[in-house]
Computed example of a mutant assay.
Amino acid sequence: MKVYKCFSSYHLKDSPHHPLPITKELHKKGFIDISEGTPAYFRAVEPEKVIASLRDKYLRSAEEVIIKLKSYQKGQRENWSPVWYLQGEWNIRGKVRDLVENSEKEFITAFVDAKMALKFKKAFETAKHKGLDVKIILLEKNKRYLNALSRFGEVIPVSLEDILYREEEDFQKIFTEALFSSEAPSRVKGVFVRDGKESIMVYEEDGIIKGLIVRIPFIPLFQRMVILYLIEKSREKN
């Protein structure tokens, strides 16, 4: 370890207790040691000790941030909001798993993009483990996805063309067409509903996957009714 000597400083000339400002700051941070005596000497602390100190400070700061964030989340839960905007596939998958954890009896879903359904396997595994009534609607027929998802619950392939383009009109049919239309600026990829009380709608906008958590009571309930409507119509056809 090299030892360095400080020159040309009136601070060190008169007293070792008044080092240069930068030396004092480094000593305060624990990066250097200062010797007693005149003239004063300083030396760098072993790198391992410096890195360990920085690591400890980083971990303490991270723990403080986590505590503050949890406190903030608790405050936000108290200030209940009926709609939350999500962005990022990782974040959306986590929120869907939370949705399953909060489910009591039923977890029903519908996917325009069957491939996307496989990205939520962990959520389906949790739902199955909890013994929930799991229904998965696929709006495209693909045996690969049907087989892969069937181990999690009831999988129902639905043809929108056969259901939507009949002569009869009803409100649920109109809502279904508006919800799953491929011509809309924001294309719905999937919908998750728990117990008719809360839902997450995943959609794509400008090539970015986004999501909406909805807790307004009548909207998740109506989304549930639409999905069950599609199941009923599909069974009638078959």
Rank of each mutant, 00 (worst) to 15 (best):
G94L: 04
R60K: 14
W90Y: 06
E64F: 01
V96A: 06
A40W: 00
L69Y: 15
S53L: 12
L26R: 01
D33S: 12
D14K: 12
K74E: 13
K28G: 03
D33A: 05
E78A: 14
L59I: 07
K95L: 09
Y41F: 14
S81R: 14
S61V: 01
K24H: 03
K105C: 02
W90C: 01
R77G: 09
S71F: 08
P39N: 06
D14P: 03
E89D: 07
K49S: 02
A44S: 08
Y58S: 11
S35I: 03
I51R: 08
S53G: 07
V100K: 00
G30Y: 00
H27S: 13
K13A: 10
E64W: 02
S61P: 01
A44V: 08
K105R: 10
R55G: 02
R55V: 04
E101F: 05
K68H: 06
P39D: 10
W84Y: 14
P16L: 04
L54Y: 07
D14V: 06
G88W: 00
L69C: 13
T23W: 00
Q76I: 07
E64D: 10
D56A: 13
R43K: 15
P39Y: 02
R77S: 09
I66Q: 14
F31G: 02
Y85I: 03
R77Y: 05
P82L: 09
G94D: 01
K24Y: 06
N102Y: 10
V65D: 14
I34Q: 00
I51L: 13
K105M: 02
H17E: 15
D14S: 09
K95R: 03
S35Y: 04
K70Y: 07
L59A: 08
D56I: 03
D56R: 14
E64Y: 01
P16S: 12
